[in-house]
Structures are given as C-alpha cells and as structure tokens.
Amino acid sequence: MNDDIGQPALRPVRGVAHCAVAGFVLAGAAWAARAVWQIRLAAAGLPSSGPPDQGEGRHRPLTGLEDAYHVVSTLGDVATLLCAVTFLMWLSCVRDNARVLSGQAPRYAWPWVYAGWIVPVMNLWVPRGIVADVHHKSAPGKPLPRAVNVWWGLWLAGMLSGLGLMYSGSTDDVIRRAYTAVQFPLLVDAAVVGAAAAGAVVVRALTAVQQERADAARQHGEDVTARR
C-alpha cells in the first residue's frame, strides 16, 4: 500500500465501529469476571496444601474454584484477542478515511498500525499517535477527545504492570498472587476494565467525527472520493 495515494472512496465505518465497541465491552466484562474470581480465591484462602505450583516442576491437583479460574482466564484471553482484532480493523478503516478526508498522508506508515503494539519502546506512544493523527486529520482544529488519553494511560498501566495485558506467566502464578496479595491483581484488572470502557468511548467519538464530516460533505456536494 502506498500512503501517498488516497483511497478512492470513504470506507463504511459504522459496522466495524459497532464490532470494535462490542469487542471492548466483551473484554471489559471478561477482565471484570477475572477480578470476581480473584476475590473469591482470596476469600477462600490458601489451601493447606499450598499454591498450585509447588515448585521444582511439581503441581498439586486444582480445587474446583482454581479450575474455574483457569476457565475464566482462558475465556478472558479469547475475549481480549477478539477485542484486539476488531479494534485493529476499525483503526485501519478510520485511518484510511482520515487520509481521504484530509488529502494528507498518515503520520505513521501502515505497518505501524500493527507493529506499533509489539515493537518495544515504540509501543509506548505509536498506537496513541495513530489514533490522535486520525482525529486531527478528520476534525482539524478540534481538541483531541479526553477519552483518548484516559484510554491510553489505563492501557499502559495494564500493559506495564507485570501482571496484566502483556503478562507471560502462568495462571497458577496469578492464583498464588490472589491468595497472598489480591490487591495488586485487582488494581490491574481495574485498569484493564477502565481501558476497555474508555476505548469504546474513543471508537464512538472518532467514528462520529468522521461520519459528521462525510455527511456534511455530501450535503454541500463536496467530492471526498478523489482527494490526493
């Protein structure tokens, strides 16, 4: 794809925006469910046999509550993946539309729409920069919605916490933390749930901006399909 050449027409955005919002709602609900199960684990207390991971490769049989948490955690991972896919579909769509509406190339080349989330250091600001660029090109002169910074701040809190979105440890380790210091996992869960809620607001806000520009252009007979 060549970022110097505008799209021949605006891409429909409402449908994919609805999917992205639904993805955020689903992910937020999944992480809220994790928090509920962590509270239940903390209330039940550490079994006399110790945590599930006994060390040196030894694991005891899981209790019913621990086994249920594994299921909840897996469903949460699936929900988070679906959220990521629908959000990236929406982001790609509004990025292309911003290029058509403004007649200007995006600030970041298209690979950063995906690579910006996984390249170390760059993932601290590139995704927010892409969203901000979409807004500035779609609504020149208008301030960036406050929800963008809220979403990004909570996302970073969940990502950099060591126990949240980018956590690579085992579910049994999370269970151990729930038994011994549940406050920290719950703070991480709250950050992720908050990020999901703010993300849904961001999607709705930027979608509305682009839809308003497109509707106004049609009313004034402006051609928004052939800008370069």
Rank of each mutant, 00 (worst) to 15 (best):
V78Q: 10
A79W: 04
L81N: 10
A84V: 11
M89P: 03
W90F: 10
L91R: 14
C93I: 07
R95T: 15
D96P: 03
N97D: 08
A98K: 03
V100N: 10
L101F: 12
L101R: 09
S102H: 10
S102T: 13
Q104P: 03
Q104W: 04
A105F: 04
R107Y: 09
Y108E: 08
A109Y: 11
W110C: 06
V113Q: 09
Y114R: 05
A115P: 00
I118D: 03
V119M: 13
V121G: 13
M122G: 01
M122S: 07
M122W: 10
M122R: 04
L124H: 14
I130E: 07
I130F: 11
A132D: 15
H135W: 15
K137W: 00
S138Q: 03
V148Q: 11
W155N: 00
L156D: 01
G158Q: 08
G162H: 12
L163P: 01
L163Y: 11
L163H: 12
L163A: 13
L163V: 12
L165F: 00
M166I: 08
Y167R: 08
Y167M: 06
S168A: 15
S170C: 00
S170H: 00
D172Q: 09
I175T: 10
A178Q: 02
Y179H: 10
L187P: 00
A190H: 01
A191W: 04
V192Q: 08
V192K: 03
V193Y: 02
G194R: 04
A195W: 04
A195R: 05
A195F: 08
A196R: 05
G199I: 01
A200Q: 08
